[in-house]
Computed example of a mutant assay.
Amino acid sequence: MRRAGLLITATLAATAILVAGSTASVRKPATVPTIAATTPSPRRQPTIPTFTKTQRDALTRELRRYLKDKPGDLSLSVRDLTTGTSYSYNEDLRTATASIVKVDIVMALLLRAQRGERDLTSREKSLAERAITVSDNAAASALWHSIGGAGGLASANRKLGLRDTDPGPGNAWGSTTTSAADQIRLLRALTSDRSPLRSGSRRYLRGLMGDVTPEQAWGVSAAGNDAELKNGWLPRERHNGRWTVNSIGIVQRLGHTYLLAALTERGTTMQDGIETLEHAVETAAAALAGAFIQT
């Protein structure tokens, strides 16, 4: 730029000399048009649809209508990992985990192994696989003792960020009580890079949950595809033999990843509980997915 300026100055000086020494007309140099500086218009940021209060209220009314004539209670939590949107229904309910606690037990086992800077032994892997994929109670009991029972589970749950889960007394791991929101926190520890569980541990357990035997693959799988889940079912003496039926897991739907936890208690039969929670999770996931479909 400096060189160009010197050349222009020199040219103007030469022109001035010519004008001073001659009466001949001198053509003025063509004027260089000035280009006005323009500021580009800011790009419009895409708007992300939100799950509005109106939509939440409509979903709550729909679930209440469905459950009105159904026996027992249901609590539901769902989180869309793709958008961060979440929804809860009857979040104050606390009920027994039944066999969904087996996921929690295996997570506690993995945390203990990490703390010891070791891999799971072949026996531990065998027990974990049986506890998750076929819901083997004897395997879960063996792992319960390996992690230190109720105290070991409570210690692990503090690390995992759980708030509402109280381990069952003695050997009664199935009597652990929890909330749907806490089960979402547990699932978040299986999907988040901020989890105390290392990525290899998370992949390992999710792989087991994705390989649950087909006859036990009901529940949150009704809400989407490629389900990674664990179910629990238990007739409870304190409820006069009525059923607690629970399901937790991770599903894919319309390009979104959903964490779901549905807890039911006091159902007349196990099948009643399954139908209730499957309807609830499918209804909730469809409502959230519908809010984010681009038109």
Results as ranks from 00 to 15, higher is better:
Glu237Asp: 01
Ser195Asp: 11
Pro71Glu: 15
Thr177Gly: 05
Thr191Ile: 00
Gly149Cys: 05
Thr31Val: 08
Leu260Tyr: 04
Glu228Cys: 08
Ser179Thr: 14
Gln294Met: 01
Leu254Phe: 09
Gly21Tyr: 15
Met107Asp: 09
Ala284Ile: 00
Arg43Asn: 05
Arg2Val: 08
Thr191Arg: 15
Thr257Ser: 12
Ile293Asp: 08
Ser75Pro: 06
Gly148Pro: 03
Ala223Gln: 05
Met209Ser: 05
Ile274Tyr: 14
Ser247Pro: 00
Gly21Glu: 10
Val103Gly: 11
Arg185His: 09
Asp182Pro: 10
Pro33Thr: 05
Ser77Val: 00
Pro167Leu: 14
Thr47Leu: 13
Ala139Asn: 07
Phe292Gln: 05
Trp173Asn: 02
Asp104Gly: 14
Arg242Ser: 09
Leu76Glu: 07
Trp144Gln: 02
Val212His: 05
Arg27Trp: 10
Leu254Gln: 13
Pro214Val: 03
Leu111Trp: 05
Pro33Ala: 12
Arg64Tyr: 13
Lys159Tyr: 03
Leu67Glu: 13
Leu263Asp: 01
Ala131Asp: 01
Ala284Phe: 09
Thr295Val: 08
Leu208Thr: 01
Tyr204Thr: 03
Leu260Gly: 04
Lys125Ile: 05
Gly84His: 13
Lys70Ala: 11
Leu254Tyr: 10
Arg44Tyr: 08
Trp173Lys: 02
Arg130Phe: 02
Arg188Ala: 09
Leu288Ala: 07
Phe51Gly: 11
Leu76Arg: 06
Pro40Arg: 15
Ala150Ser: 14
Ala4Gly: 03
Ala128Leu: 02
Arg61Trp: 12
Leu160His: 07
Thr176Pro: 04
Leu187Trp: 07
Met107Arg: 01
Asn240Lys: 14
Leu74Gln: 06
Leu74Ser: 04
Asn225Cys: 02
Leu190His: 04
Ser221Ala: 14
Gln216Ser: 03
Arg198Pro: 00
Gln183Asn: 14
Thr177Asp: 01
Leu7Asn: 02
Thr264Cys: 10
Leu205Pro: 08
Leu186His: 06
Arg123His: 08
Ala96Val: 13
Gln252Leu: 06
Gln216Leu: 11
Leu59Tyr: 05
Gly168Lys: 04
Arg194Gln: 12
Gly84Gln: 06
Asn171His: 04
Asp272Ala: 02
Leu162Cys: 08
Leu254Val: 00
Ala13Trp: 11
Asp80Thr: 06
Ile132Pro: 01
Thr257Asp: 03
Arg123Val: 10
Thr15Arg: 14
Thr23Ala: 15
Lys102Met: 07
Gln271Thr: 08
Thr121Gly: 12
Lys53Gly: 07
Arg202Gln: 15
Tyr66Arg: 11
Leu109Val: 06
Ile8Phe: 12
Gly241Cys: 04
Pro33Trp: 07
Ala261Pro: 00
Thr85Met: 09
Gln216Val: 00
Lys53Cys: 10
Val26Leu: 13
Ala131Trp: 01
Thr47Asn: 12
Gly5Ser: 00
Val251Thr: 07
Ile293Cys: 07
Glu91Val: 03
Gln252Ser: 03
Val19Phe: 07
Leu186Asp: 01
Val106Gly: 01
Gly5Ala: 05
Glu282Tyr: 12
Ser201Glu: 12
Gly151Cys: 09
Asn157His: 09
Val134Asn: 08
Leu111Asn: 03
Gly152Leu: 05
Ile250Leu: 11
Ala223Ile: 04
Ala24Thr: 03
Thr38Tyr: 12
Ala284Leu: 12
Trp173Thr: 01
Leu63Asp: 03
Asp57Leu: 14
